[in-house]
Design a protein around this nucleic acid. Structure first.
Lengths: 247, 247
DNA sequence: AAACAATGTTGTATATTTAGCAACAAGCGA
DNA sequence: TCGCTTGTTGCTAAATATACAACATTGTTT
């Protein structure tokens, strides 16, 4: 399908600005996009009219605008899975004492759309809205194992334990499928272990995944199977509430 | 400045979809925008290519897409005030026992960009990214009192205590300016009282506001002035850290 | 069942709109 | 002061988006 060039350019500019930490000037945008200064100027003004970008009064440089934040909130409101899942996240926190997360697939990554913090003193940054790779997170692997079978192309390493071999990953996905939950054993962040299980609708179609994550000192390898059973059960309860009839 | 029509139409579609709770069809969008079905179809496809909207596989209806959520996250990362303010939010929670919030001005409303939850059992929904009116929230009134002096046009009532008279509001803003903090006495939500104070840069330019909010039973009218002093002090400390030299 | 209505998508020609060039204004540094 | 960079604006050509129409698909009604 042919995409509309002008609109696509505007959206690409937003992608550019996302990368640029300290904003970009008109000329800079024009160069990066390989378009004329004047075109960039007019596109940026239009984006600014709708609050998608803001121009710093002093430097005249452009940054992502607050409208994106409020629209993002609108996205969350629209995901009904989130409403249904919330009490189950609290249940996970109650039963495990660790932070619980809910993620869905988006742009071939794991998109965190909700969390429930444990009462433990250690605070976690709000991660809602962030994307994480699939191959080295428990939530991601749970979704890979119960999803449509497509694997990520590149398995980038984040720690020494990150699985970077397609065959190894494939084998582990089968294992996850059989036992019903996935584990991240310090494969993404050092010192953090996670456990996750899939959430499915009545047809068995993958909706997302829920799981817990905590310091390796608390989430020990001995206890991790117990956590797995809990997470799998809570995820199954949530799936059941959504109308999933096993078999 | 003349805005680029095609891009503007795409952005307007996003605004439309924000309102429509259950998504919109191509024809529906076309009617609402007063453009042809084919144009709407192509615009929507382009938006979908970049993840700004998603089409439900079954119903072919369009909704806001996950890209908006991740871009919104990018907006948060870019607001350096947020990083500086976070420890001060925790300080507010420690000293008052109530939830603390940070807001900035955006689209002539108060945009909540961070929060610190109290350890009280009562949980608050994540409000980051939401917009609230200025005239009936403590954060909003603090920003009005110390901002550029522009008042909101319409003072919509939310509770019986909401100030709906411009003159009354104006008088209260002066009061807020003199004493250094603003109060919301159940003017937005029944049973909730809030206290807030402005955050300013070294030139005295308004950057945002921080404050606390809690149940009226805990935030009583007798104690509210004590809270006010605390909030004012913490906000002043934050402003000072940002380089604000009083006088 | 079958006709019908409504929806979403795809060609195509026209004409509107954008894009690029160039000139201009403004800020900064040398 | 001069030169350099940046951001914005007129203007025209030309590319692009638009509307019209036809088509495919789905769901509804009689």
């Amino acid at each position: 399908m042919a995409e509309i060039q002008t609109l696509a350019r505007g959206l690409k500019i937003l992608n550019l600005l996302e990368q640029a930490r300290s904003g970009m000037g008109t000329t800079e945008v024009a160069k990066e996009m390989a378009i004329d200064k004047s075109s960039a100027s007019r596109l940026l003004h239009t984006l600014a009219n709708y609050g998608f970008v803001v121009q710093d009064e002093g430097t005249a440089r452009y940054q992502l605008g607050p409208r994106l934040l409020t629209l993002g909130q609108g996205v969350l409101d629209r995901i009904s899975l989130r409403d249904h899942a919330r009490p189950y996240l609290y249940k996970l926190v109650d039963e495990t004492g660790e932070c619980a997360h809910l993620a869905i697939l988006a742009q071939r990554q794991a998109l965190y759309i909700d969390q429930a913090e444990s009462s433990a003193a250690l605070r976690v940054e709000s991660e809602i809205g962030t994307l994480s790779p699939l191959h080295c997170t428990a939530l991601g692997k749970a979704m890979l194992a119960f999803g449509d079978g497509a694997l990520p192309e590149a398995l980038l390493p984040f720690t020494q334990r990150t699985i970077t071999d397609q065959a190894v990953l494939q084998a582990q996905l089968l294992h996850i499928c059989q036992r019903g939950y996935a584990i991240d054993d310090e494969e993404y962040n050092y010192g953090v272990r996670c456990v996750a299980a899939p959430v499915q609708d009545h047809r068995g179609k993958l909706l997302g995944a829920i799981g817990i994550s905590g310091p390796a000192a608390r989430v020990t390898l001995e206890r991790i199977d117990d956590f797995g059973m809990i997470v799998r059960q809570v995820a199954a309860d949530l799936s059941a509430k959504l109308g999933y009839a096993a078999g």
